[in-house]
């Protein structure tokens, strides 16, 4: 065997060894901290370079795409009126709930949390894993395992942070699992991502009553996500009498491919920039 070949084999063995060591680290995110300066640098470049794109996009959405806006506006106004009435009713329910909670000696859950806005910067380099990079990091009070929401519902949680950026694991990612509860029937399960725009609600017994259209919310059991955050709506229920658990598909309330602005849910008493 020539000297060149030995050299090649040694290098290959070294490279494979390095990969095996990295794989054995599993999901240890601390390793990627060393590469965070790169993500940081990209975030500054990103803001500058994406500006012309945002301008063109804005020009399109604000002027060209405004056909039929008048009709849409009318419909939205009607919708708004309905929502306002609903809101007033909800306000009543909320006040009553707060009163009852206070009577029982419990604190209102949502008073413990504060929302920090962030903007989407980039997305996962693969088409399979569902993570996004946002323009807020540890200096903006974003922290690992911080829940991330949009006005429509739960988006995911922060998995790594750098001073000015954070990586968010979306609920549609196959690595995501969230303890959930069906709002109407209080049936508990675990919502898992499937890598697509549909979620799986797992570990729900076949004997439990689950209906299409039911709302799925966080149960707050694992301590990361606050209780009662909307995850989605039951889209399909497949019962098999020979299986212990029902196969339930959930449509997420947030369309992940269209998210732009999101909020990190922090605990009260911390200041955002």
């Amino acid at each position: 065997m020539g000297h060149g070949n030995t050299h090649k084999i040694l290098l290959a063995v070294f490279a494979i060894g390095l990969v095996l060591i990295l794989l054995s680290l599993g999901q240890d995110r601390s390793l990627s901290l060393s590469s965070n300066p790169m993500r940081e640098g990209f975030s500054f470049f990103g803001k500058g370079i994406t500006l012309p794109f945002s301008f063109v996009h804005g020009l399109w959405t604000d002027y060209v795409a405004l056909v039929n806006t008048r009709q849409e506006n009318k419909e939205l106004r009607k919708e708004l009126q309905k929502t306002q009435v609903l809101c007033m009713t909800m306000q009543e329910v909320r006040s009553e709930n707060e009163r009852l909670s206070a009577m029982l000696g419990f604190k209102s859950e949502h008073k413990d949390f504060q929302l920090y806005p962030a903007r989407l910067l980039g997305q996962d380099i693969t088409n399979v894993f569902k993570t996004v990079i946002v323009d807020r990091g540890s200096r903006n009070k974003f922290f690992t395992d911080m829940p991330v929401v949009s006005p429509l519902g739960l988006v995911g949680r922060v998995i790594t942070t750098s001073p000015h950026t954070s990586q968010v694991l979306l609920i549609t990612d196959p690595n995501s699992a969230i303890p959930a509860i069906i709002e109407e029937t209080r049936v508990k399960g675990v919502v898992k991502g499937a890598g697509t725009n549909v979620l799986n609600l797992e570990y729900v017994r076949s004997t439990e009553l689950v209906q299409v259209g039911s709302t799925v919310v966080t149960s707050g059991l694992e301590g990361i996500f606050p209780k009662g955050m909307k995850i989605g709506v039951v889209r399909e229920v497949n019962r098999d009498p020979h299986k212990i658990f029902t196969k339930i598909l959930v449509a997420p309330s947030v369309e992940m491919s269209k998210i732009e602005g999101i909020f990190g849910v922090g605990r009260n008493g911390t200041d955002a920039d």
């Binding site: 050299h7 090649k8 290098l11 290959a12 490279a15 390095l18 990969v19 095996l20 060591i21 990295l22 794989l23 054995s24 680290l25 599993g26 999901q27 240890d28 995110r29 390793l31 990627s32 590469s35 965070n36 790169m38 993500r39 980039g122 996962d124 380099i125 693969t126 894993f129 569902k130 993570t131 990079i133 998995i159 790594t160 990586q167 694991l169 990612d173 690595n175």
Partner: peptide, 28 residues
């Protein structure tokens, strides 16, 4: 070979923070 291997290893490691993939999976 050696120059190429070094480049591919380091480049794929640099991709890691931009993905939710398990550490080491992209270099592999």
């Amino acid at each position: 070979f050696s120059q190429g291997l070094v480049f591919v290893m380091v480049a794929s490691l640099a991709l890691q923070p931009f993905s939710g993939a398990r550490t080491g999976f992209i270099p592999m």
